[in-house]
């Protein structure tokens, strides 16, 4: 990054010490500008890995605010601390042996019964998820709703660091999504067909050919690649296009939800 002289400097406190940093930096960039080397509490720098939770205050509010350091711009008067890790210890479970019942999530995470619906978790979530609502869904055994509402969780753990009931929200959401994925949505027939093809060795020759290629030959092959066309013609498949929406995917339930036909 180039910092030119005409970028105004702002004052902030990093972990209790005063610094002047250029405005317009992310918190993470400001920490590095100030001379710190981040060996923990930094990861993808793209808002996906959840490794860089930050706690901060503004000089005009008594509140504690939370954010991801890589996604939030510094502000004048900010006082912040990096929170590289929120301890997560849960009772181990074996998904293969779980029998899904309405109280399965409660049995694995009995502390969710302590939720007082204060909604602090929701207000702390940098993803803007309805965290308290997915805990409440888990509490009443609505695994599907818990899975849907927690779909975009990046496990940064800020919710859990702020919860007065010490709930491990992101672990609850993860188990809800696992149970929903394993027991509720129907298995994709394409997947089992593809696994059978793989096990029959249908792709072994192609893979062997690729393994034997030089980097230059691979590059040529890569540049010549073609995508499968979708059935109705026109656009090619994209794994990410549909989900990389700034809008909460819960609003797009019809896209991500598979109803079981009965």
């Amino acid at each position: 990054m180039t910092v030119t002289e005409n970028v105004p400097l702002i004052s902030m406190q990093l972990m209790g010490k005063d610094y002047s940093v250029p405005s317009g930096l992310t918190i993470m960039a400001a920490i590095e500008y100030a001379g710190y080397k981040l060996v923990r509490g930094a990861g993808c720098r793209g808002g996906f890995c959840g490794a860089c939770p930050t706690l901060y205050r503004r000089d005009d509010s008594h509140r504690i605010f939370t954010a991801l350091a890589c996604q939030t711009l510094v502000e004048d008067g900010m006082c912040l601390v990096q929170m590289p890790f929120v301890p997560l210890m849960t009772k181990p479970y074996e998904l293969q042996t779980i029998v899904p019942r309405p109280n399965t999530l409660l049995q694995h995470f009995p502390e969710i019964a302590g939720c007082v619906a204060c909604n602090t978790c929701t207000r702390a979530c940098p993803q803007g998820l309805q965290v308290m609502d997915y805990i409440q869904a888990a509490l009443r055994g609505d695994t599907k709703r818990a899975a849907m509402l927690s779909f975009d969780c990046i496990s940064c753990g800020i919710c859990s660091s702020r919860c007065p009931a010490d709930i491990k929200h992101y672990a609850v959401g993860l188990l809800a999504r696992r149970i929903y994925g394993k027991f509720v949505i129907p298995a994709a027939p394409d997947l089992s067909e593809r696994v059978a093809e793989l096990e029959a060795g249908d792709y072994q020759d192609v893979l062997n050919e690729l393994v034997g290629m030089s980097a230059a030959e691979l590059r040529v092959r890569y540049e010549q690649r073609s995508f499968e066309a979708v059935a109705d013609g026109g656009e090619t498949h994209s794994a990410t296009k549909r989900y990389n929406s700034p809008v909460d995917p819960v609003d797009f339930q019809d896209e991500i939800e598979i109803e079981i036909e009965r």
């Binding site: 619906a117 308290m132 609502d133 409440q136 509490l139 007065p164």
Partner: peptide, 17 residues
């Protein structure tokens, strides 16, 4: 999107949470 009722009514009237 309803939440748990809180189960037992708190008799501590100023424990607002």
């Amino acid at each position: 999107e309803w939440n748990c009722c809180g189960v037992v009514h708190s008799l501590t009237s100023d424990n607002l949470i």
